[in-house]
């Protein structure tokens, strides 16, 4: 019987590149679970989240961090957010469901997204080439999240700080996504 262990493949093969002081790196091994709010169940979900994570459901455009810093909730839709945390094991939905019970509807999204961190002095000028959103601190402060289109790709952008952004895009088009971001950094360096 041949050994048929299944090993995981990361979307961008662990990509990392330095452009002077600016770095573009794949973020691997993240779990991403979508949490949808049942109709009429917003209060119950908020309670459960407060109890379990010490934070409430984030409004679209903002993110909320759990008290222990292990989970960041991304406010993407009025009735849906993404929980982002370190992947451990094969059932990220279970990790959330165990804690929030049936106060929400959960769907695994951990494999759907390729994730990049762009950080350093060139980050904003590179993003200016592909991101239609205004990124000035007043408009998109630390902790902001948004979903938009960049180079014909759907991208989620998260501001970690003025010089550091996390970008997520569909796994299947990861090479095109990487090419778009990489070209942007090259074009401004």
């Amino acid at each position: 019987m041949p050994d048929l262990t299944l090993t995981a493949s990361p979307p961008l093969d662990g990509y990392h590149k330095q452009f002077g002081d600016t770095a573009l790196t794949e973020i691997g091994d993240q779990a991403l679970v979508s949490i949808a709010v049942p109709l009429g169940g917003a209060d119950a979900l908020d309670s459960a989240m407060t109890g379990a994570y010490g934070t409430t459901f984030p409004a679209p455009g903002s993110t909320a961090l759990s008290k222990d810093g292990s989970v960041r909730f991304l406010g993407l839709q009025p009735d849906q957010c993404f929980a982002l945390f370190e992947l451990a094991g094969n059932d990220p939905v279970e990790a959330i469901a165990n804690v929030l019970g049936d106060t929400g509807y959960y769907t695994d999204q951990s494999d759907s997204w390729a994730m990049l961190r762009l950080s350093g002095p060139l980050a904003v000028s590179a993003l200016e080439r592909i991101c239609p959103l205004g990124l000035a601190p007043a408009a998109f402060p630390q902790g902001s999240v948004a979903r938009t289109a960049m180079e014909h790709l759907g991208v989620i952008i998260l501001c970690e700080n003025e010089d550091s952004y996390v970008l997520m895009s569909a796994r299947s088009s990861a090479p095109s996504f990487l090419h778009a971001v990489e070209t942007s950094v090259e074009n401004v360096s």
């Binding site: 409004a59 679209p60 455009g61 009025p78 289109a149």
Partner: peptide, 11 residues
């Protein structure tokens, strides 16, 4: 109404 001004290309 929730996200502020966005380019029509997103729609």
């Amino acid at each position: 109404p929730l996200l502020g001004p966005r380019d029509a290309a997103e729609f």
